[in-house]
């Protein structure tokens, strides 16, 4: 079984400590992908990448198609996005994003390029803390919040969910986006805010 394999690999000393804090019963997609991302980052682990690819490849492709990319172009772009996931794996920070969220930002940037949308400057980088890895407890909380957010989005009334999807996949003006309300973002925001505060403190 793929899942138990990844748990075993993640239990190597010094690696993917997130999975150690999450009991096997609680082991769910989000934490599992984190463990594999960390293996790609630390060991350039091809088996872990293959597993990530199996899950996220079709999702990235679907995201690109839903955003108006031709299926043939979407396949090539998806490969580019997944190659970027490999190349930038060491930049993934599980205290600030789930793997799905991190891959979303890479896919979004690629979509902006291919659709020749407006240039999108990035905010100033945050300094990395002296610790090479995020505090595993912070990472676990953030991954749990991400899962809860995903479930909350699924439970929204259809109309509201469609509006949110249109904002992210479609073509909405700033004025139209202003009508999208009621997103349950308070807890995940607070969690990330705390992680940023810790990071700032560790730098001073």
């Amino acid at each position: 079984m793929v899942r138990s394999e990844s748990v075993t690999r993640a239990d190597k000393p010094g690696e993917a400590s997130v999975s150690k804090l999450v009991g096997k019963d609680e082991m769910n997609g989000t934490a599992e992908w984190v463990a594999e991302m960390l293996l790609v980052a630390s060991n350039s682990d091809e088996a872990a990448f293959a597993h990530l690819f199996g899950h996220f490849g079709p999702r990235v492709k679907a995201f690109l198609i839903k955003s108006g990319t031709e299926p043939a172009v979407a396949e090539e772009c998806m490969q580019e996005v997944m190659a970027t996931v490999w190349q930038k794996a060491h930049m993934f920070d599980p205290a600030r994003a789930s793997v799905a969220t991190w891959i979303f930002t890479i896919a979004r940037n690629r979509r902006i390029d291919i659709l020749r949308r407006s240039r999108r400057p990035e905010p100033e980088d945050l300094p990395w803390g002296p610790e090479p890895e995020a505090d595993p407890a912070d990472a676990v909380s953030l991954q749990q919040e991400s899962r809860i957010l995903g479930e909350a989005l699924k439970d929204l009334p259809d109309k509201q969910r469609e509006l949110i999807e249109k904002a992210y996949f479609g073509d909405m003006t700033h004025g139209e986006i202003a009508r999208v309300t009621g997103l349950p973002l308070g807890t995940i925001k607070s969690r990330i805010r705390l992680a940023l505060e810790k990071l700032r403190q560790s730098m001073t």
Binding site: R59, A100, F104
Partner: peptide, 20 residues
């Protein structure tokens, strides 16, 4: 606002995960 943006990115991540 950096943290708020990260939470909006998390919505994008959840939509990506459900896109299939």
């Amino acid at each position: 606002c950096r943290a708020r943006l990260a939470s909006f990115d998390a919505v994008g991540g959840a939509l990506l995960d459900a896109s299939v």
